[in-house]
Amino acid sequence: MASNTVWHAHKVCRDSREILNDHKACLLWFTGLSGSGKSTVAGLVEEKLHEMGKRTYLLDGDNVRNGMNRDLGFTDSDRVENIRRIGEMSRLFVDAGIITLSAFISPFRSERRSVRELMPEGDFIEVFVDSPLATCEQRDPKGLYQRARQGEIQNFTGIDSPYETPEQPEIHVINNGITPEEAANTVIDYLLTHGYI
């Protein structure tokens, strides 16, 4: 750990970036089982925000693991480190004045809480994309559940590794029997009614 470093405050600050952007920055943290629709909903939310002229960036689990976090596996400790790094990176994006969308299973409450605690009050918006395990298995867009059931993938969330559901998410999307568009509009409505955009 770096003990001889101090955070340097620059003249161009978050407030000035938000004024330039004409919207508040925040972190939309999409969590849910594999196949719940997190990435789909997050992608649609970003598209809608982009059409509205808002500055955004979407961090997706697979994309990050192909780059910055490619050295991590899927053990519990690696999952914790994965989320820690994403949290730190998200904090920088929010400081840059950007509406940041992070779509990760992030199965443990303690790790989601640690990311929340990195952020100033109101900056972390937990979006629980809630789909039943059976529905996620039916969707199984990458064939991962089938491989996990056959023992080909270890430590798979929902099968042999737990998912701890959010207790009080800011946004709870029950993504079962609704369209991705409806799910995305739930998030946009929250941002509008709470003055982020």
Results as ranks from 00 to 15, higher is better:
residue 140 D to V: 06
residue 140 D to Q: 01
residue 140 D to L: 01
residue 140 D to T: 02
residue 140 D to S: 02
residue 140 D to K: 00
residue 141 P to C: 08
residue 141 P to D: 06
residue 141 P to A: 06
residue 141 P to F: 09
residue 141 P to T: 06
residue 142 K to F: 10
residue 143 G to C: 03
residue 143 G to L: 07
residue 144 L to H: 06
residue 144 L to P: 14
residue 144 L to M: 14
residue 145 Y to E: 09
residue 146 Q to G: 14
residue 146 Q to W: 01
residue 146 Q to K: 11
residue 147 R to H: 04
residue 148 A to H: 02
residue 148 A to D: 07
residue 148 A to W: 10
residue 148 A to I: 02
residue 150 Q to F: 03
residue 150 Q to A: 15
residue 150 Q to M: 14
residue 152 E to D: 05
residue 152 E to G: 09
residue 152 E to F: 14
residue 153 I to T: 04
residue 153 I to W: 11
residue 153 I to S: 03
residue 153 I to F: 14
residue 154 Q to P: 04
residue 154 Q to F: 12
residue 155 N to Y: 08
residue 156 F to L: 07
residue 156 F to G: 01
residue 156 F to Q: 00
residue 156 F to M: 06
residue 157 T to N: 06
residue 157 T to H: 06
residue 157 T to E: 03
residue 158 G to F: 10
residue 158 G to I: 09
residue 159 I to N: 03
residue 159 I to A: 04
residue 159 I to Q: 01
residue 159 I to E: 01
residue 160 D to Q: 09
residue 160 D to A: 13
residue 160 D to R: 13
residue 161 S to R: 05
residue 161 S to G: 04
residue 161 S to A: 15
residue 162 P to H: 01
residue 162 P to R: 05
residue 162 P to L: 05
residue 162 P to V: 03
residue 162 P to G: 03
residue 163 Y to R: 02
residue 163 Y to H: 04
residue 164 E to A: 06
residue 164 E to S: 10
residue 164 E to D: 11
residue 164 E to N: 05
residue 165 T to N: 06
residue 165 T to W: 01
residue 165 T to D: 07
residue 165 T to E: 13
residue 166 P to M: 10
residue 166 P to W: 06
residue 169 P to E: 08
residue 169 P to D: 12
residue 169 P to G: 15
residue 170 E to G: 05
residue 170 E to H: 05
residue 170 E to Q: 13
residue 172 H to I: 11
residue 173 V to M: 15
residue 173 V to P: 00
residue 174 I to C: 13
residue 174 I to D: 05
residue 175 N to L: 07
residue 176 N to L: 08
residue 176 N to E: 15
residue 176 N to K: 11
residue 177 G to C: 11
residue 177 G to D: 13
residue 178 I to K: 01
residue 178 I to R: 03
residue 179 T to P: 04
residue 180 P to V: 15
residue 180 P to D: 14
residue 180 P to G: 07
residue 181 E to G: 00
residue 181 E to F: 10
residue 182 E to M: 15
residue 184 A to P: 04
residue 184 A to N: 11
residue 184 A to K: 05
residue 184 A to C: 11
residue 185 N to E: 15
residue 186 T to F: 05
residue 187 V to M: 02
residue 187 V to N: 04
residue 187 V to P: 00
residue 187 V to T: 10
residue 187 V to Q: 04
residue 189 D to V: 08
residue 190 Y to F: 10
residue 190 Y to V: 04
residue 190 Y to S: 01
residue 190 Y to P: 00
residue 190 Y to H: 09
residue 191 L to E: 02
residue 191 L to F: 02
residue 192 L to R: 10
residue 192 L to N: 01
residue 192 L to I: 12
residue 193 T to Q: 13
residue 193 T to M: 14
residue 193 T to S: 14
residue 193 T to H: 11
residue 194 H to T: 15
residue 194 H to I: 06
residue 194 H to N: 13
residue 195 G to I: 13
residue 195 G to Y: 12
residue 195 G to V: 13
residue 195 G to A: 06
residue 196 Y to D: 01
